[in-house]
Amino acid sequence: MSQGIAVSAIAYVIPSEVDEKATDLTRFHFDDASFAYMTELAPLYNAENTNLHSFHKRGGHLILWHGLADQSISPLNIIAYYQGMQREMGVEQTDSFLKFYLLPGVGHCRNGEGFLPVDFLTPLMAWTETETMPNTIRTERPVLGEGPMLPPLGEHGKPTAGGQIHMAPMPNQPYAQANVASTASNPVYPYPYIAQYTGTGDVKDAQNYRPVKSPVFVPMIFASHEVTKTVPPDF
């Protein structure tokens, strides 16, 4: 999956000119020259600008999330971006309009062993319209067969043509269904807080957890116009 995303990006998206030969990763060298080549269009593509003052002044609210089991894009990147925004705008101001969540066990976009689907739209709307800050997001594991349905598989268990996105089956219902029966629930708290079991009650019930600050420290920080210095090829 990671290779499928990488070769397409290197050949058709990242360079200033299409290079179909780049689909052969054996031709790609992980050196300073290649890094400079890959960052030529970085200002256009990279979501690295940590200065969101204008967005904040217009009353904008933002929810960021990333799966901790993402096998294609490391969650360290978004942690670095979030911490860079805090440095740029200040911790208090950043947290007044932005909430960032890490989903345990969730892969790239979905997949993985984590609890899915997750409804981020409803809390974002409530935050925008009624100033109800989303300090907790409830995640659930639906009963097998419930929730967004995947397209039928074709020969040899592979998705049918046109039924893929990022090398994974694309759901034919791209939204979270309301009132889907679940077998378990967990809370997710804004980074850097994680869910800790209180020690009493059903471990499969989100109400029996509390937020605790994670002891893990991530030193990476993105800064506007400095990303190529922050994450060099030999990082």
Rank of each mutant, 00 (worst) to 15 (best):
Q164G: 11
Y189D: 01
D19F: 12
R27D: 03
Y12G: 12
V216W: 12
T122F: 06
H61V: 06
H225C: 10
E113F: 05
E131N: 15
Q207D: 12
R210D: 10
E20F: 11
Y175D: 01
H156G: 10
G90F: 06
F235N: 09
E146K: 01
F217L: 15
N172E: 08
M85I: 04
F100P: 01
A42H: 11
P15L: 09
Y193A: 09
L41S: 15
T160S: 15
V231P: 02
N179L: 02
Q86K: 11
L68W: 13
I137N: 00
M133C: 14
W127L: 11
M1C: 11
F115V: 01
N135G: 14
S74N: 09
N208Q: 13
E129H: 12
T230R: 04
P142K: 01
I165A: 15
Q71K: 11
N46M: 12
A47W: 12
H29K: 14
P75R: 02
A36Q: 12
L52N: 02
T228N: 09
R110L: 08
L103C: 04
Q173Y: 07
L153P: 03
G90T: 02
R27K: 14
G199M: 10
C109Y: 01
T94V: 08
H53S: 14
T94P: 02
S96T: 07
P187Q: 05
E146H: 07
V106F: 00
G90Y: 04
R58I: 10
Q86D: 03
